[in-house]
Every structure is written in C-alpha cells, then in structure tokens.
C-alpha cells in the first residue's frame, strides 16, 4: 500500500493514544486492575449524555468533563461497593459499569429526539477521520486529535515521571507505601483519574476499543518479556506505538484479501497489539512458551541456575 500523509496522521494519532494509555496501563496491570479501563470506558456513557442534556451542545469540553467525572465516579463506586458491601472487586466493577452504561443508554434513548449521540460512535470512534479535523498552531496545521492526545501523553509522562517511585512502591507494596506516608488510596484515585481522563480524551478521538486494548495488552506483553519496571514501561510504549502502525496497515491490507474495502483501524490496532502479545507469549526470551519448550528439549536448562531477576510481578 502507499502511505500518504493521511495514513501517517492516523498512525500518529493512534500511536499517541496507545502510548498515553500504555503508561498508566502498566500500573493498572501491576495493581491487578486491568479491567478498570474497560469498566470506565463503558461507564462514561451517562456522563456524556448528561453533559449533552445539560449544556445542550456537543462541545468537547463539557462532554469531556462529564465523562471524566463519571469515569472517576466508577472507580469510587467500585471501591465503595467492594469495601462496604464486602463484594469481590471484579464483581463490584461489573455491577457499577453495567449499571452506569445501562443508565447512559436509557438517557440517550429517552432523549433520542434531541440527542444526536450514537453509542456506537462512542465505542468505535472514527480514527479514520482524524486528519480532517485540524487545528492550526503557529505555522503548523495539526489534526486536533494529535494535539489533544499529545497533551494527554505529556501529562501522563509527567505523572509517571514525577511520581515514579511512589507509584512503584504502592503498586508492589501498598502497606509499606501507606506506612511511609504515601497514601496508596490517594495514588489509586490519582491513577484512576488519569485513566479516566486518558480514556475520555482518547475515545472521543479514536474509540474506546483502542483504549481498553492499549491499557492492558502492551503492559501484559512487556511483563512477559521483562521483570523490571522501567524496561517494562519502555517495552509497553514500544509495543503500543508499533501496534498502531501495524494495526493501520492490517486495516488497509487485510480486507483487500477478501475483496473488501479498508476496515476500522482502531479495531485492527487492538488486534495488532494482540498479535504482538502473542509473539511475546510464544517467543519471550526467558519465559516464552516456545522458548521454554525449546530450551527444555535441548536439555540445557542453563538459566535455571541464574534464578529469576528482581521480581516485577511475582506476587500472585
């Protein structure tokens, strides 16, 4: 295929979203909260609907604030239900997000006459259209999504950079983190806020499926390759960026095999991330399925004596 600047902008937007999600995603995965991204991205629907019904406009800012607020509320409600009600956290999450999503659907349907909100649009986004909506900054004519996601990425980078040791501590040992004076609950809510803001910013642009995938899949792949946090973050970002490019290529190329036209890039970006995860799963240098099998077959289990490195995710 011929890559035009159009394609490049799509890939750039996807990569920015993906990397912005992969950063907090690593901590979500380490904190066993991988499903939070999925929960938040479904739960924001009533926030979007309410923002629209209240302000009567589809300006991004109101929608953004409404959605992000509901996103944080999802985390808070989940926490409340699992703590006060003694409910398993996964179940609490499921109850909260399905209920919020249902309320959102009802709100949209009730106001169908006035609202031009398509739940499908929220979920899939329209990454293919990103290059059409541009902002002019100085001499540059950048797609709005690229600008927005660039800002979000910088914010996330800043958060991870500034709070690196606190986040690391509270991810691995919340108890110690609390005793040392870094409230792990506060950090939890901070992380949830970041996830909510990232989710909302990204899926207005590219659809929630990228967000859900990029929060989990790159971090999971990185975790299979390394046991150290900093390499994990770097690898996750690399996987995220790569899956954006591969995904777009797949979206253009694969349908032509079946004689169809190009398909949804964001879906394919998730698939590409899954493929990269599969590669890490099978060929990971120290614990890939095939690598281990091959090593065992050669009977040279040399690594056995080296022992595991500093455990990144040993606490099961």
């Amino acid at each position: 295929m011929n890559w035009t600047s159009f394609d490049l902008w799509i890939v750039a937007a996807g990569a920015l979203c993906a990397v912005a999600c992969a950063l907090p995603g690593c901590f979500l995965v380490l904190r066993r909260m991988s499903m939070m991204g999925d929960a938040i991205s479904h739960a924001v629907l009533p926030g979007l609907a309410a923002a629209f019904l209240i302000t009567g406009s589809r300006t991004s800012l109101a929608m953004f604030v409404g959605a992000a607020a509901v996103g944080v509320l999802t985390a808070i409600f989940t926490e409340w239900i699992s703590r006060f009600g003694n409910v398993d956290r996964g179940a609490a999450m499921g109850i909260v997000f399905t209920t919020l999503f249902a309320i959102g659907l009802l709100m949209i349907r009730r106001a169908a006459g006035r609202v031009d909100l398509d739940p499908g649009c929220v979920l899939y986004g329209a990454i293919e259209l990103t290059p059409l909506d541009t902002l002019t900054i100085g001499p540059l004519d950048l797609p709005r999504v690229v600008v927005v996601m660039g800002v979000v990425l910088i914010l996330n980078l800043a958060m991870v950079g500034l709070l690196f040791k606190e986040l690391r501590l509270s991810a691995f040992d919340p108890g110690l983190s609390d005793t040392l004076g870094f409230s792990s609950r506060l950090l939890h809510y901070l992380l949830m806020t970041v996830v909510a803001v990232t989710t909302v910013a990204a899926f207005e642009a590219v659809g929630s499926i990228i967000v859900i995938a990029m929060l989990i899949v790159p971090a999971g792949a990185a975790l299979l390759v390394t046991r150290r946090l900093v390499p994990m973050l770097l690898i996750a970002c690399g996987v995220a960026a790569a899956s954006s490019a591969i995904g777009h290529w797949l979206a253009v190329e694969v349908p032509s095999w079946f004689g169809a036209e190009a398909t949804n890039s964001s879906g394919m970006m998730a698939v590409a991330a899954g493929l990269l995860f599969g590669v890490a799963w099978l060929f990971g240098p120290s614990e890939g399925v095939l690598t281990t099998w091959w090593r065992r077959r050669r009977g040279a289990d040399v690594d056995h004596h080296r022992g595991p490195g500093p455990a990144v995710a040993e606490r099961r």
């Binding site: 991988s34 998730a270 899954g274």
Partner: peptide, 28 residues
C-alpha cells in the same frame, strides 16, 4: 502458561477479540 494474572488474561481477550470483531464488522 504465563505468570500473568486472570485480570490481564480477561482484559486481553476482551479487547483483542472485540477489536477483531469491530474490524470484521467494518469489513462486512
């Protein structure tokens, strides 16, 4: 086969399969 926990496995299957589904729906 890996040391990833249940939640990662769930999230992974969810997002990758759903992504594939969206892509397939886009094609058809």
């Amino acid at each position: 086969t890996t040391r990833l926990r249940d939640d990662v496995a769930m999230g992974l299957v969810l997002s990758v399969f759903f992504g594939l589904g969206v892509a397939v729906l886009g094609m058809v």
